[in-house]
Design a protein around this nucleic acid. Structure first.
Lengths: 95, 95
DNA sequence: CACGCGAGCGGTATTAGTATTGGGGCATGG
DNA sequence: CCATGCCCCAATACTAATACCGCTCGCGTG
């Protein structure tokens, strides 16, 4: 076995990370945040949509930095997903 | 070119991350930490040696968690490398 | 002393997956 | 209209993660 395919759990974890980042981005545009973070808008979009379940470490760091988000809070929000998202951000998410 | 090769800066950044993780591991063995973090010892060793300059986000998270290291302090230590390592850890490193 | 042992290192090989560019498509609002 | 913002698809270069091999070095033990 060389490199095992990602499990379902790992993919779901990636989706939670994406949702957390999208919620933090709120009303700013993908292009805005991506260029400021030094990555391509397509990559950010894929991360937010969970299409990149295990993004590179420094990529996540750069995005979180632009969003003014501490990595520790970001991780804390991953465990319990939606339950931890404030009502206001939920509305933003559903828009 | 679809995906440009990593720059020298990015590789050096990976080496700093590796050194920081190794310093945090201190006296514990690679195998011990790696298995506890759920990754292969080979991978952890390569990350510590800078051979994996941009490791996956959750891989770094798992290792930092096992080492009891906050991601925020880990990142803070990356900027200025050795100057920020306390004397005690430097001695450990040189051993 | 010689021996093995634990720990780590470098090389190579393999597959899964990331990051990126560029294309097109569909709304919404100035 | 046309810009903005988001989405999907395809192709491609490069990397992550894993595994196996042999090698080295320090340490304690017989």
């Amino acid at each position: 076995m060389v490199r095992v395919p990602l499990t379902l759990d790992e993919r779901e974890r990636g989706e939670r990370l994406g949702r957390a980042l999208r919620a933090a981005r709120a009303r700013r545009s993908i292009v805005d945040v991506a260029t400021q973070a030094g990555i391509s808008p397509e990559t950010l979009r894929k991360i937010e949509r969970g299409r990149i379940p295990t993004p590179a470490f420094f990529t996540v760091v750069a995005v979180a930095d632009v969003l003014g988000l501490s990595l520790d809070e970001l991780l804390a929000g991953l465990a319990t997903d939606t339950e931890r998202i404030p009502a206001g951000d939920l509305a933003t998410l559903a828009r």
